[in-house]
């Protein structure tokens, strides 16, 4: 188990967003995280990452409770995860290459030559053209920003990758390539992936397990078959709604 969340309560003012949520992420899996908009999928991600304070509950990352960590221990954990933010969160004043090199420069002891080559390798791995390296984020299209941000989140070869809606804003072919890329990386690097997504294709093709958030708790988790079999009203309309039907019959018609 690489991340374990127990009895998590998160709130803003009077509003309680997470009401005693439990969630486990296992080593080497791709966990898809779904839920209605505005239910706090991103909030959960940000709470695990330590960007949003929690009211109570425990979060364990790599087997360590994040509450009791010293600053140095925390930094070490932060080098072992990579995060792809929804809007990319690329540093707007740096080029794509500099963005990718930023964590490497700060945390690793690489020669200038290796820094250059390694950044180019990451750029290539996420399917960007080499001439994107010297562009500023404001000169990139939405899909390119996603890829560049993924390249940056992969810069330190993390063990866990947090992806917040990675395929939103990509065309279907690009999204498919993105899913394949994540699957390949998982296979080669032994990556564990936590993916917040609305993309049914990603859920079917890339994810090993799916957890659904509703009303501040996990309402269901398990492989896609379990999701399809669930009779929770939101899950039914999500996986059996109009948009889902084509994919269900195309891809896992046997299970449906």
């Amino acid at each position: 188990m690489i991340i374990s969340v127990r009895d998590l309560v998160v709130g803003f003012g009077d509003k309680i967003v997470m009401k005693g949520l439990d969630l486990d992420i296992y080593r080497g899996e791709i966990l898809g995280f779904v839920g209605p908009s505005g239910q706090g999928k991103s909030v959960l991600t940000r709470t695990i990452l330590g960007l949003v304070p929690k009211r109570s509950g425990t979060i364990e990352v790599f087997g360590e409770n994040v509450d009791g960590l010293s600053i140095a221990q925390r930094r070490r954990i932060e080098q072992r995860w990579g995060v792809l933010f929804q809007q990319g969160a690329l540093f707007s004043a740096l080029t794509v290459k500099q963005n990718i090199q930023m964590p490497m420069r700060e945390h690793l002891n690489l020669s200038e030559r290796l820094l250059d080559e390694f950044a180019r390798l990451k750029i290539e791995m996420v399917g960007l053209k080499p001439d994107a390296a010297d562009k500023l984020p404001s000169e990139l299209s939405g899909g390119m920003i996603k890829r560049a941000a993924l390249a940056r989140s992969l810069a330190l070869d993390p063990e866990v990758l947090f992806l917040d809606e990675p395929t939103s804003g990509l065309d279907p072919i690009g999204a498919g390539e993105f899913d394949e890329l994540v699957a390949t990386l998982k296979q080669t690097l032994g990556l564990t992936v936590f993916m917040v997504t609305h993309d049914l294709d990603s859920l079917y093709t890339a994810c090993d397990r799916i957890a659904a958030l509703g009303d501040g708790q996990i309402i269901a988790q398990g492989p896609i078959e379990a999701m399809l079999a669930s009779d929770h009203p939101w899950l039914r309309s999500y996986f059996h709604g109009k948009r889902a039907r084509n994919i269900v019959t195309d891809k896992v018609g046997v299970h449906a």
Binding site: E117, R120, L121, E124, M125, K129, P130, D131, A133, T184, Q187, T188, L189, G190
Partner: peptide, 16 residues
């Protein structure tokens, strides 16, 4: 795994 990784770690496009 090594083989997949070695295949991935190849820069195919020419250096600009």
């Amino acid at each position: 795994e090594h083989r997949i990784l070695l295949r991935e770690a190849r820069i195919l496009s020419p250096v600009p």
